[in-house]
Design a protein around this nucleic acid. Structure first.
Length: 313
DNA sequence: GGCCGACCTGTGAG
DNA sequence: ACTCACAGGTCGG
């Protein structure tokens, strides 16, 4: 059953939020229409100028609550944008093009395993790997051909590693297996719940006990599924952004060392004061190749990109 | 403690 | 056609 809620594009921009590299399970199935899986259900979302239509299969009484929680609609985005804009002209510029950017409130296990796949990889391939993992080990969502994200227990054992290698996971196959086993060993969901309560630095340190989880992936997890919104993942994009706009003396570094990593994160935290990682996501989008030329005000790529797209079809 | 090369795979640029 | 670099990095030496 389709339902809707009132919401403008400035309040949330589904395209950027769902396809911008936070989560890898959403697809644009038609203009302004998105399909994906979370919380064990298959969801369809349609964005209109003044409302969003949604549907979950199978449907339950708490669908709207579940969706609001996932989209983090409980937080005042406009207020944050004003705060971040007033402390940084560079943000202000990006924010004009990328309105309605929210941090999804994701499920930790999916977040952890998806971002283990993200290392030295591109969004397209990460998405297909995650999709493969779900169809191999996830539970079928009844009434659909889609699969929920697998339980951590189903990803344990040598066989999994072998199968994932066969599914082209490369060196990440071992990390997935080892991390699944490590999470169970550390206490499973109880351990994950503790990570949400403890402070950001401690949670990050704990996460880095997992094979395949370094400082960057740990920050992604802190930011996207553990409510530590001050975590700033510093990847190649953010390093470039920092060199160009904020910390030019870092240009001489070829790679991001631990010290440089922390300097950039600390800089963003002191600049934005609150939810630095959320603010950073707006800057990140502005640097993403897939969103080059994007402007949420007209919701279209520029002519250069569109002509390229036409060629492909 | 910091730096460096290797690492699975796929794709686009040259 | 054929390298080659690079993609939301991490690990071991």
């Amino acid at each position: 059953m389709m339902r809707k809620f009132i919401c403008t594009r400035d309040q949330i921009n589904l395209k950027c939020v769902l396809l911008g590299g936070q989560c890898f399970r959403w697809k644009e199935i038609a203009p302004n229409e998105y399909a994906g899986v979370f919380a064990g259900g298959f969801w369809t979302l349609i964005q209109n100028d003044d409302h969003i239509v949604y549907k979950r299969v199978p449907s339950t009484d708490s669908d709207e609550e579940s969706l609001f929680n996932y989209l983090r609609m409980d937080e005042n985005l406009i207020e944050y944008y004003e705060k971040w804009s007033s402390s940084d002209p560079t943000f202000q510029k990006s924010a004009k093009k990328f309105k309605g950017i929210r941090m999804l409130r994701q499920e930790p296990v999916e977040n952890i395993l998806s971002f283990i796949c993200s290392s030295n990889n591109n969004i397209t391939r990460i998405s297909s790997m995650v999709e493969n993992m779900c169809s191999l080990y996830g539970e079928n969502i009844s009434g659909t051909p889609y699969f929920a994200f697998p339980n951590i227990e189903s990803l344990m054992g040598a066989k999994v590693e072998e199968e994932l290698k066969k599914a082209k996971f490369g060196y990440r196959a071992k990390f997935i297996r080892q991390t699944a086993e490590k999470i169970v060993q550390l206490g499973g969901n109880k351990w994950i719940d503790k990570l949400k309560i403890m402070d950001y630095i401690s949670a990050k340190k704990e996460l880095m006990l997992l094979p395949g989880v370094g400082p960057k992936v740990a920050d992604c997890i802190c930011l996207m599924s553990l409510e530590h919104l001050e975590a700033v993942p510093v990847d190649t994009h953010v390093f470039q952004i920092a060199c160009q706009n904020y910390l030019p003396h870092l240009k001489k570094y070829k790679t991001v060392t631990d010290r440089v990593y922390n300097e950039i994160g600390d800089y963003f935290r002191s600049l934005f004061k609150v939810n630095a990682g959320w603010a950073h996501t707006v800057l990140f989008l502005d640097d993403l190749k897939n969103f080059k030329g994007y402007d949420s005000n007209n919701d279209q790529m520029d002519s250069k990109i569109s002509s390229k797209r036409r060629k492909k079809c």
